[in-house]
Write a protein that binds this DNA or RNA. Structure first.
Lengths: 139, 139
DNA sequence: TTTAGTGCAAAAGTTTTGCATGGTC
DNA sequence: GACCATGCAAAACTTTTGCACTAAA
């Protein structure tokens, strides 16, 4: 299924109209597995030549978050980071010196998370992991 | 040990001067185990009759976060939530609904990190983990 | 006495909202 | 055709910063 059609179906499921602006936001999110701020999304849309208002980006993200299709994380104060929920879950290994990124194919922390949740009576729904260090070349 | 003295020692450990304002911020944080926003801390200080500027609250929180005495979580976009924590390395489990925070006593991911580093030729120096879900009461 | 810390107010960001217009169902 | 969604600009907030002044060490 083409991405435009898939995005349209996702929006319809949430009871939202499939406007070009919303599809465009979803496409940018698809290309940002580690999430992006509203400003970043807006910048990338403009870079693509799409004319989407910043307010529309915020409203779209709010609607998608409400509908559960997007997670709103927040790394730094005063700046939220939005991430598509359905995108394949994985973690990154980042080199502190050269910024090289190794994408880990899969996340094998599930057993650890399950134990954690059980121990504290939580139903774990999300997690994020950032690992940084020095790569072989920089060490 | 009286709280004022304990707070003073904590500040000294971080290389910070023990001003009345900083001690007051620490006392409010002590009374907010699930964290409080900078604005909330400021409001509670004024309610107590303390005259502390909002900028000082932000600067104090930044210094404490830098020193590892405080965690900066972020529940809602555009609003950071600060919470006192032990200085030892640890992770938090946060409830998505009621914002309750469970501090995990220790980090037992070291073996996992060691394996990860070896597999990709990295010397791992830092990591951060955020786990969110629904607590027993909210599930 | 030295230097870090404070208060105030202004500035810089991010996020939200009002309202007329345009597009989707 | 009804009504949701958009764009723009202004407003509301949170957070940061500059500067003169105060107080801790």
């Amino acid at each position: 299924m083409p991405t435009v059609q898939r995005d349209g179906a996702l929006l319809a499921d949430l009871g939202l109209r499939a406007t070009p602006q919303r599809v465009a936001v979803l496409e940018v999110l698809s290309g940002a597995p580690d999430g992006a701020t509203a400003q970043e999304i807006h910048d990338r849309l403009r870079a693509r030549g799409e004319r989407v208002g910043l307010a529309t980006v915020y409203r779209t993200l709010a609607a998608l978050t409400e509908g559960g299709a997007v997670d709103a994380l927040a790394h730094r104060p005063g700046e939220a980071c939005y991430r598509l929920c359905g995108s394949a879950h994985h973690h990154n290994l980042v080199c502190e010196r050269c910024n090289r990124v190794v994408e880990l194919a899969e996340c094998d922390l599930e057993p650890w998370l399950a134990r954690l949740g059980d121990a504290h009576g939580f139903r774990v729904t999300r997690h994020s992991v950032e690992v940084a260090g020095l790569c072989a070349d920089c060490a």
